[in-house]
Computed example of a mutant assay.
Amino acid sequence: MVQQIRENRSKFFKVKCPDCDNEQVIFEKASTVVKCVVCGRDLATPAGGRATLKAEIVQELK
């Protein structure tokens, strides 16, 4: 029998809010609107599969 190793194809991103410079971690495939916890600005909106990011990506987390 052949075993297949499944890689996780989804990522988390550390993003920086353009308004208040707060950094927070969001999921690449967010299914709801992600808001900044400090100022409330939308950082990501769902778009079918992957979310549309409206913030600067600081780091890709694995």
Rank of each mutant, 00 (worst) to 15 (best):
10 S>I: 10
25 V>S: 03
19 D>F: 06
30 A>P: 01
46 P>I: 00
55 A>C: 12
12 F>N: 14
44 A>E: 11
47 A>P: 00
61 L>V: 09
62 K>M: 12
59 Q>Y: 04
49 G>K: 15
34 V>E: 13
24 Q>V: 05
5 I>K: 15
38 V>T: 13
50 R>H: 06
16 K>L: 11
55 A>L: 10
28 E>H: 06
6 R>D: 12
37 V>N: 07
23 E>Y: 00
39 C>R: 00
7 E>D: 12
28 E>I: 01
49 G>H: 09
10 S>V: 05
6 R>A: 09
56 E>I: 00
55 A>M: 06
43 L>T: 07
4 Q>D: 12
17 C>R: 06
59 Q>P: 02
25 V>Q: 10
7 E>H: 13
53 L>T: 03
29 K>D: 10
52 T>I: 11
53 L>A: 13
9 R>S: 13
30 A>C: 11
3 Q>S: 14
26 I>G: 04
61 L>Q: 05
32 T>H: 13
37 V>S: 09
28 E>F: 04
52 T>G: 04
28 E>N: 08
57 I>G: 08
5 I>S: 14
28 E>S: 14
22 N>H: 15
24 Q>K: 08
46 P>L: 00
61 L>N: 04
9 R>N: 11
51 A>G: 11
27 F>G: 01
11 K>N: 15
15 V>K: 09
36 C>M: 01
61 L>W: 03
34 V>I: 15
32 T>E: 14
25 V>N: 08
50 R>K: 12
29 K>G: 01
42 D>E: 12
52 T>K: 15
24 Q>G: 06
7 E>W: 03
29 K>Q: 11
49 G>F: 13
28 E>P: 06
16 K>Y: 00
23 E>M: 13
53 L>G: 10
26 I>D: 02
35 K>C: 09
43 L>W: 05
50 R>L: 05
8 N>I: 03
20 C>F: 01
16 K>R: 15
23 E>Q: 14
14 K>W: 03
58 V>N: 07
2 V>M: 07
25 V>Y: 06
29 K>C: 04
56 E>N: 04
23 E>G: 04
31 S>P: 01
36 C>L: 02
42 D>H: 10
8 N>F: 07
7 E>L: 09
23 E>H: 07
9 R>A: 09
43 L>K: 06
56 E>F: 00
17 C>Y: 05
45 T>G: 05
17 C>N: 08
35 K>A: 05
